[in-house]
Nucleic acid binder design. Structure first.
Length: 287
DNA sequence: CCCCAGGCAGTTA
DNA sequence: TAACTGCCTGGG
């Protein structure tokens, strides 16, 4: 495949650092020139901000423009979304100001399911390392600029890994969960299509929750980061921290349940709760 | 040495 | 249904 390039002129709401470091993805790495290189699908891409332009360059399996429009959610008007959210309260307005270039990527469902199962009780550097090793061992090679990159393995490719193989890659207790989830999709007991085609968010979530390694938080991440459900509100330790700090009296912090936080988020942010979560999360982690 | 990290699953009360 | 606990592993 040949290298392609696509330049976004004068684009608003697109900051590589915000997009790749707001916690939604694990396969983008910062380069020395502050650009980011990542792998998604069968594409390897470098994203560089140059003043008001975004330069997208890499090896694409198809037309780079169409692929990037889809992956970077370029059809969505983030200015409109941010205006709505910023009007909700001052805290949100501040956090949006901090992560104004965030976009929710349109990520592959299979990769997102496995990646967030791996994220359980884990930290980001280690999650990235584990996923790297999985791709190196079971994905396809793509060469670009003298470097070799690896795609995320398909269901069939990952099914070649035994529980012991996965343990050797450093998955720890998550090995069995990943193995069993892979088997479920390999055997067709659940399909990616049925998840993608189901319109009712609660029904998709119920299905996701039957997978080993998928609990409420992981299910919400899959819904938000791959299935475009902007209304879900994944609560992890950081989101709990930021919600406590902003909305809960200190003496009540221990008492407020996850369920109550969910209700609070829904009441405040309604159908944009997931986007609010991203801005708050990024702000709390960076600031 | 201990503690924790973007939770889940299994067990109690 | 809420509360509690163990879990692989690597870094601070």
């Amino acid at each position: 495949m040949k290298e392609q390039q696509y330049i976004l002129k004068n684009v608003k709401s697109f900051e590589p650092k915000h997009i790749f470091e707001c916690g939604q993805c694990f396969r983008w790495d910062k380069e020395e020139d502050n650009s980011y290189t990542g792998i998604f699908g069968n594409n390897v891409l470098n994203v560089k901000k140059d003043k008001e332009d975004i330069i997208l360059k890499g090896i694409c399996n198809g037309n780079i423009e169409e692929i990037c429009k889809q992956y970077f959610d370029l059809e969505t008007d983030y200015d409109k979304i941010k205006n709505k959210l910023a009007n909700i309260d001052e805290y949100l307005a501040n956090s949006i100001n901090y992560g104004k270039g965030i976009r929710i990527l349109n990520q592959d469902l299979w990769e997102t399911i496995i990646s967030f199962e791996i994220s359980a009780n884990n930290n980001i550097p280690r999650i990235k390392g584990i996923i790297d090793r999985i791709c190196k061992n079971y994905g396809n090679e793509i060469k670009w600029n003298e470097k070799t990159y690896y795609t995320f393995p398909s269901i069939q490719q990952l099914s070649k890994a035994s529980i012991e193989d996965l343990r050797k890659l450093g998955l720890g207790f998550r090995d069995k969960r990943i193995y069993e989830t892979t088997q479920i999709f390999l055997k067709g007991q659940m399909t990616l299509e049925e998840l993608e085609n189901e319109q009712d968010t609660e029904k998709v979530k119920e299905k996701l929750l039957t997978l080993p390694g998928v609990g409420p938080k992981v299910a919400d991440c899959i819904l938000l980061f791959s299935l475009k459900r902007y209304e879900v509100f994944p609560i992890d330790v950081w989101v709990r921290r930021v919600m406590n700090e902003l909305y809960i009296h200190q003496e009540d912090e221990e008492k407020v349940s996850k369920r109550q936080l969910q209700k609070l988020a829904k009441d405040k942010y309604s159908n944009l709760a997931g986007l609010a979560q991203q801005y708050l999360f990024y702000w709390k982690r960076e600031a």
